[in-house]
């Protein structure tokens, strides 16, 4: 059974694999990033849960189109109100349980730097999901495109800039912005552009 570790007390294999990536502090020349975005039932990280996650790999300064994952999560307790609100059409894609989603996500992310727009909330949502599985918190470093934008434009700390506005400022086409995969793609483009400008 998939949930053996919960009762057995020992940590599951995927978690061991995941944590092992962080053991040797290898300084690979080409930094690895994973840009991700998610859809959740709400904005309260304690109460709400994740409905889907999209993640995209970035090697150094290049987006790897083929390195892409899209996970839909079965959340029985919740109605699909917020799904409708976000305009997500889940055309019958296979849904997985939250545990399986975490396995897939961590296998994908490995030790890459996680990048997202207003990433703190997303990270916390994942941490909560991991907590429900009796596991520790994410070990990855993470970067926030909102913070990068602050640095780029010398905005005061705490300024919130929407992804749309950033895309406009960076001349990124937004026609893909209605889905989370579109959001992820825009975030990734914004990320590689700002990364270059900030010389990270």
């Amino acid at each position: 059974m998939a949930f053996d570790w919960i009762t057995g007390g020992s940590l599951p294999q995927f978690w061991k694999n995941y944590t092992s990536f962080f053991e040797d502090d290898n300084n690979a020349l080409q930094k690895k990033y994973v840009v991700f975005d998610m859809d959740a039932t709400g904005l309260d990280w304690k109460e709400d849960v994740i409905l889907s996650i999209v993640a995209l790999g970035v090697d150094g300064d290049a987006i790897n189109v083929g390195e892409f994952i899209e996970i839909y999560i079965q959340q029985d307790k919740y109605t699909s109100n917020s799904i409708a609100a976000q305009g997500i059409v889940n055309n019958g894609a296979e849904k997985v349980v939250e545990a399986e989603a975490m396995i897939q996500f961590l296998n994908f992310a490995k030790d890459a730097v996680l990048v997202g727009h207003n990433v703190n909330l997303d990270i916390e949502m994942i941490n909560q999901a991991l907590k429900r599985l009796g596991l520790g918190r994410l070990k990855n470093q993470f970067m926030d495109t909102n913070v990068l934008y602050q640095k780029l434009k010398d905005l005061p700390d705490g300024t919130k800039t929407g992804l749309d506005e950033i895309c406009d400022a960076l001349k990124i086409d937004k026609n893909e912005r209605n889905t989370i995969s579109g959001n992820t793609y825009s975030t990734a483009l914004a990320f590689i552009k700002m990364k270059k400008k900030l010389d990270i």
Partner: peptide, 11 residues
């Protein structure tokens, strides 16, 4: 081809 493509930005 697409999944083997990388996307880059140039300043």
């Amino acid at each position: 081809i697409a999944i083997n493509t990388k996307i880059k930005s140039l300043d």
